[in-house]
């Protein structure tokens, strides 16, 4: 089973959670339309320690170097980056739209805050997605309980702080339920 935490050695720094990193790319043409969202998701790797994270991350392209319509999904092991997953069904996400040129720095700041447990919302964080698009890039942070207002507000405040967003930056909360409709 690929979705179990990898082993770590005693001299590594264990993370609170193990994570899996996924990649997806929208395929143009007929084949792309035939493939489900699930079939487009490719597992890149898993990690359970800080050292394993850097080992994986340093071999990856930065988000700004990716082609348009490519996404990275970083989720806790055991949670698939899909609305349909049990952990996401009642959840939602903060959506941050970024003008071109900011995404690599913001993505790194976000995942370091997530791995380091800076959000302080217990089990609530599910994962993060970065989406490279034509005119802008989008970063999303998914959490379990969309109806928990104090948690979603706390996540928003931490997100704004760790991304170093200007007060005018637009942040929007979407429940997965709304996205499905």
């Amino acid at each position: 089973e690929v979705l179990v935490a990898p082993d770590i050695s005693p001299d590594e720094h264990k993370l609170q959670y193990a994570y899996a990193l996924w990649y997806s790319k929208r395929n143009p043409g007929k084949l792309g339309a035939l493939l489900s969202y699930d079939q487009n998701l490719k597992l890149i790797g898993r990690f359970a320690s800080v050292e394993q994270f850097w080992g994986l991350y340093s071999h990856l392209s930065r988000p700004s170097e990716l082609n348009t319509h490519t996404d990275f999904h970083l989720f806790k092991i055991g949670i698939k980056p899909m609305w349909e997953d049990e952990a996401n069904q009642r959840g939602g996400k903060w959506v941050v739209r970024l003008r071109k040129g900011l995404v690599s720095r913001c993505w790194e700041n976000l995942i370091l805050a997530m791995l380091g447990e800076q959000f302080m919302v217990g089990e609530e964080i599910c994962g993060a997605v970065v989406s490279i698009r034509f005119q802008e890039d989008i970063i999303c942070l998914w959490n379990k309980t969309a109806s928990d207002l104090s948690t979603t507000q706390r996540i928003r405040d931490t997100l704004r702080r760790v991304l170093h967003l200007p007060p005018t930056a637009l942040m929007e909360y979407k429940t997965h339920n709304d996205s499905l409709k």
């Binding site: 993370l15 800080v50 050292e51 340093s58 370091l112 791995l115 380091g116 447990e117």
Partner: peptide
């Protein structure tokens, strides 16, 4: 139990440790 919390600077410091390569 206790949550494992790491500051950004601490994580960045481990970036170049031999185990991270």
């Amino acid at each position: 139990g206790t949550r494992i919390v790491y500051e950004r600077a601490f994580l960045m410091n481990l970036r170049n440790s031999p185990i991270s390569q």
